[in-house]
Design a protein around this nucleic acid. Structure first.
Length: 591
DNA sequence: GTAGGGTTAG
């Protein structure tokens, strides 16, 4: 057998070995420190550097006396060099103290020490973690001027940085210039897109990665699964699941959670639960993902049951867990359960409710028709200064319960805070349309045109035989267009016979007069369901993903469609799932 | 001593 000389380049000195043996335990480290001093090595930089980093990542590094000791030690090191600073910066960046990393970097520059590629990777990571875009860009220019912009580690760190700060344009530009991309570089780009709500781009990069012949690892798959979750792309998600099984990748808690989330968001709640049950280790994030899954499918009681089980298992819920629980209560109409959970946040877990929790509470009270209670909650919890998110939830409740006066009051408040958000105008005009105030609907539309505010365009996706078909309202681009429209016309006649009466008010605010009838009949989800019914077998589910909320009319129509076709239809809209079966929806018209 | 991953309301 060949000797592998590179493994042991040079034997360490006995004192260095002693340091390594002491590991991260403070007392033994301090004993070695004494040895260092006694042996006259108290000015040997390399030993002191190693000692300092070990002290800093020791289990008691949080204690004040240890911090003071570390500070004295640092000051005792003669003529700090780049290596010392790199060690400290890397340690700070890795152990959740990014601000310290930047301070050290500045001190290093002030001491006229030349930063290296190691310095830059860590400082850039720190900037990414802090979303410090200005500082990061300054560091980037220094990367270039110091000639480290062709180092793949630095490049990857920069891709991460631009991704984290939402500057995908620069992230991509840098990524494209990396000549020999490592898996980590690919992963950084995929994660950048996925975390910024651009799942299609994430999938596209993954496909280029496949073409380039780079083998994905578990981090790649985690980001890819998250992209699938956002898209509702079940077939790709299933492919990822098969892939990791075939590769024999260990199903760790992170990968498992990504799978749970993917299955839940793609409509396969039972499969999500199976993955959850099979996990070796379950942390708060995994439990939260499963609770959230039940919540968005309308299974409030299951969500609460799981929440209780999680607490019994000894884990403390975090604020995200509470968002999931409160949202689950809101979607299932479990008001008292939700109020109890909200109260326990502070009382039992010492968590301060944030805007997200307030939104859930307002949504929960509002949906349940408790509009006065919701207003009272807003007044008390936000001290009269509700954020736009909270008011949006309130406005939604006003629309749901057709409370015209309160709706106008809330909307005026909301538009004063966020005059540039088209969604608010759409919601308000919806309320006016419901109240039959077409003059006001008209006025709002004019304001929107005047301010160049465009409402989001709705679309629906349906996957058939692993191909994704996209439909937009009044879409005529599909090759089966004629058949789809003909089928849909007949379907609507059929459900009318069964008792369906179109609810026109929802469409009024969105469109020009002459488009109305056309639009109502041909909302994107109706086109998608017609296409699905035409092209799938009688005993299979129909799964549709919509980017906006379903309108009342489509919701009503889908109830009837499930009845007359005898098919189960699962729709994921912007906020939750609807399972239509035999004329009823799982949300019990409560969404 | 160097880069990347999962859960969050409306």
């Amino acid at each position: 057998m060949k000797r592998r000389a590179t493994v042991h380049p040079r034997p360490h000195s006995p004192t260095y070995e002693a340091l390594l043996r002491a590991g991260r335990r403070v007392r033994p480290l301090q004993q070695v420190h004494a040895r260092i001093v006694v042996a006259g090595h108290h000015r040997t930089r390399s030993l002191l550097t190693k000692l300092l980093t070990l002290i800093l990542c020791s289990s008691s590094s949080a204690s004040g006396s240890i911090a003071a000791y570390a500070r004295t030690l640092f000051l005792s090191i003669p003529e700090p060099d780049t290596f010392l600073f790199n060690s400290l910066i890397t340690l700070a960046a890795k152990s959740g103290r990014p601000a310290d990393a930047i301070v050290l970097y500045r001190r290093m520059s002030a001491a006229c020490l030349e930063p290296s590629n190691y310095t830059f990777t860590s400082v850039v990571k720190a900037c990414a973690d802090l979303s410090a875009s200005r500082t990061g860009r300054v560091v980037h220019s220094r990367v270039i001027s110091n000639g480290f912009d062709s180092d793949v580690f630095v490049q990857t760190a920069l891709v991460v940085f631009y991704g984290k700060t939402g500057d995908l344009h620069h992230a991509r530009k840098l990524f494209d210039r990396i000549p020999n991309r490592t898996v980590v570089a690919w992963n950084a780009m995929i994660a950048g897109y996925e975390q910024n709500g651009l799942p299609e781009e994430a999938v596209a990069i993954f496909q280029s990665m496949q073409v380039a012949g780079k083998e994905p690892d578990s981090a790649t798959l985690v980001s890819l699964l998250s992209a699938c979750s956002q898209l509702g792309a079940l077939s790709l998600g299933l492919w990822v699941n098969d892939y990791l099984v075939n590769k024999g990748l260990e199903l760790n808690v992170v990968l498992g959670t990504a799978l749970i989330n993917m299955y839940a968001r793609c409509g396969h709640l039972e499969k999500a639960r199976k993955i959850f049950n099979g996990l070796q280790e379950r942390n708060v994030v995994a439990w939260t993902a499963m609770i959230s899954g039940y919540g968005m499918h309308g299974h409030g009681h299951q969500a609460i049951k799981l929440f209780q089980q999680m607490k019994s298992s000894g884990l403390s819920p975090n604020d995200v867990t509470f968002v999931a629980v409160l949202s689950a209560c809101a979607h299932a109409g479990l008001v008292s359960e939700g109020q109890e959970a909200f109260a326990s946040m502070r009382r039992d877990c010492g968590l301060v409710p944030r805007v997200e929790h307030q939104v859930c509470m307002v949504d929960m009270l509002g949906r349940a028709g408790l509009l006065d209670e919701a207003m009272l909650f807003i007044r008390e919890e936000t001290r009269g200064l509700p954020g736009p998110e909270v008011l949006t939830a309130m406005l939604g409740a006003c629309k749901m319960h057709k409370n015209f006066n309160l709706g106008v009051e809330v909307a005026e408040h909301l538009l004063a805070i966020e005059p540039g958000n088209p969604a608010h105008y759409v919601l308000l005009s919806n309320i006016f349309a419901l109240a039959g105030r077409m003059d006001r609907v008209e006025k709002i539309r004019n304001v929107m045109i005047h301010r160049h505010l465009k409402k989001q365009i709705g679309y629906s996706l349906i996957e058939i035989d692993q191909a994704t078909h996209v439909f937009r309202m009044g879409d005529t681009s599909h090759r089966q267009t004629m058949e789809i429209y003909k089928y849909l016309e007949e379907l609507i006649d059929k459900i009318k016979e069964a008792g369906y009466v179109p609810e026109t008010s929802a469409a009024l605010h969105e469109l020009e007069e002459e488009e109305r009838e056309f639009a109502l009949r041909f909302h994107s989800e109706k086109l998608a369901v017609a296409f699905g019914l035409m092209n799938t077998s009688k005993n299979s589910f129909i799964r549709i993903v919509k980017n906006l909320r379903m309108c009342n009319d489509c919701h009503l129509a889908f109830n009837f469609i499930s009845l007359v076709s005898g098919r189960e239809i699962i729709v994921r809209d912007k906020h939750r799932f609807h399972h239509f079966k035999q004329g009823l929806c799982s949300c019990q018209n409560y969404w």
